[in-house]
Nucleic acid binder design. Structure first.
Lengths: 350, 350
DNA sequence: GCGCTTCGACGAAGCGCTTCGACAATGACC
DNA sequence: GGTCATTGTCGAAGCGCTTCGTCGAAGCGC
């Protein structure tokens, strides 16, 4: 590989001038820069990442810590990852994935202290996350995707569950629904302190009550079978719900399957609105689901921007940045049975 | 951060002695080593990855190139990734994930030339993969997971589709089945040159014919709906298949759903054997599926070992290493209707 | 006791880059 | 026309580590 010295020689300038031309940290005349650039091209020069990292004490690498082994990488996360990787690249950084379990916080810290990365994006943050303490105490720049119980001054980005559930509920109530149920993630996720389970549940209940209605909430295992059972149980309730909001993709399939098997028309007799979904799930069902799509890409870009400002030494932002899911119409949501069809573009709020 | 110089000073030895104690590239007396080790602990020393990489021209990083944006990271891949990450760590390396699309071969190459990684694991290799040519021409050490059309002397590990399908077929034939169908991945994957679609299909057909039977093969979109349609079509065939082998997880759910909806008993009237599955899918169906589980973890370990030997400069292995899937009994496979129940532990081969 | 090898440790020369201080050359200003 | 910034470039000092050549001190056989 050609070195910077080779480039300098070929361009007839000094080594440092090449470096400044590359980094822009000092001005270089247009003519000189041009000679340098063409020398680089001629030599196929690639800057040595290690040398650069050593001299600048910056690896230009951002690490995304994700427990891939435990969860796999679903569609939402994939969207997040690719948006984050692209955003990082635009800023001259690289995004690497560190598949560490939640309890391997020390290894993450050590890798950063060894200079393998300048900062860390921590995904799947639980309400009480050991990694956050470790990283904070070690002075490692990081940004959370999700929030701990106590958000106090730690940089984070997250889905706006409160607004997402409110919009979901408002939408359904605007269509005349009065009996709404929520199919949440499982009790097991709650036991792990998986924050979305709590935030969405609370948001849903609050939004329903704000309409003077009574929420029905079920925590359901992540399996089609559990979804079927939940649907069966909801159908037996009196009053029977006419709309169900789900935040549990796998169970959602079970819910829809059970409804179909019982001959309950979707959306004529029961509306199904899947929230915080990943791309592509809508079309895995028939009729295609109406969903509220998780803002994975936006979160990815935002998380990288936030982390880079942490790496640069900026003070942490006062509050978490929250982004709601966006409604993507499908054919699983309709007016409540017996309700007048909602006027197009009607304001869903009472 | 403490440097190696600090450690040397505290231990009362020279810098180079510390280095040799750490690397083992030269002998260091036990007493000296012990002083060094305790000095390291006292200072909380972490070797600087950049400096080490610069001096040794080795980053000790292996990159896993995976088009996460396109595919998401399913269960199989997650198993692979975590096994590979662990294997790498055991060898003093780090595994990072580079989420590049298949057409970003140049970026992968450049990153390696910049010294960000010593070698590359290329996942989801297609029959004619542009990345393979680019990496080979650039002299970048790499190992493929999967195989190109032409395996000639390129290091690779892969699922043994031939043996997996043969064992699946033998198992079913041993249970008395005479009419076997295969639900494959979609035509779209075939168009992309996705190798498993071809290898499994060919393996299945050959295995069935080896028993003097006639294979039925369908390429099915990756959706439950497409699975339902495939099942419906298979049921209408004459003779009607009594066993279906599937290699398409999402479609498999549709197949099972359609069978259930039509009241076709699984496995009494129809056996379903899902091959190349990821963990957990068996239990997402009811009854739990009999599966042949993808050897993701073994492949991960093997791929890392192969890549490290490439990085060390060994000649590429003559042939690809293939690992079959392993049969995991569930309750979706049984004797053919009307066939005598297979004796326990019966040899499935005729 | 002599030369011989072996062992353990040291010093110094890089690895390829960033960045600081220095310094001509140029232009602006009164 | 002298002073003072400003601009563009250079040389050199590291960044923290690996590794080569070297060398004193033991250990060996005879």
């Amino acid at each position: 590989m050609a070195t910077m010295q080779d480039v300098a020689r070929l361009a007839g300038v000094s080594l440092s001038t090449v470096s400044y031309a590359l980094s822009g940290h000092r001005t270089v005349s247009a003519a000189t820069r041009e000679r340098i650039v063409s020398a680089m091209e001629e030599l196929g020069y690639q800057p040595n990442a290690m040398a650069r990292g050593l001299a600048s004490r910056r690896s230009r690498v951002l690490a995304l810590v994700y427990p891939a082994a435990e969860r796999g990488l679903g569609g939402t996360v994939a969207e997040f990852v690719s948006a984050a990787a692209e955003a990082a690249r635009e800023k001259g950084h690289h995004l690497v994935l560190w598949p560490f379990r939640t309890d391997q916080a020390d290894e993450v810290r050590d890798l950063v202290l060894q200079g393998m990365a300048d900062g860390v994006l921590v995904m799947e943050v639980t309400l009480d996350d050991p990694r956050v303490t470790t990283l904070r105490d070690a002075g490692v720049p990081f940004t959370m995707i999700g929030r701990t119980r106590d958000v106090a001054g730690l940089p984070s980005v997250d889905v706006d569950f409160e607004r997402t559930t409110r919009e979901a509920v408002d939408h359904l109530v605007g269509l005349g629904h009065r009996h709404l149920a929520f199919v949440n993630h499982s009790e097991a996720t709650a036991a792990e302190g998986y924050a979305p389970t709590f935030r969405a549940e609370e948001g849903f209940a609050a939004a329903v009550r704000a309409h003077g209605l009574e929420p029905v909430v079920r925590r359901v295992d992540e399996s089609p079978q559990a979804g079927r059972e939940a649907a069966a149980e909801l159908l037996d309730r009196s009053p029977r719900p006419t709309a169900v909001v789900t935040m549990n993709e796998i169970a959602t399939f079970g819910v829809v399957a059970e409804l179909q098997q019982r001959g309950i028309g979707v959306p004529d007799e029961m509306s199904v609105l899947a929230i915080v979904t990943s791309p592509g799930v809508a079309d895995m069902s028939n009729p295609p689901l109406t969903t509220m799509h998780s803002p994975g890409a936006d979160l990815g870009r935002l998380a990288v921007a936030t982390l880079l400002s942490q790496v640069a030494g900026d003070p942490p932002p006062a509050a978490a940045t929250l982004i709601p899911c966006t409604l993507e119409p499908g054919r699983s949501v309709g007016p409540a049975p017996g309700a007048p069809p909602a006027p197009a573009g009607a304001e869903p709020h009472p």
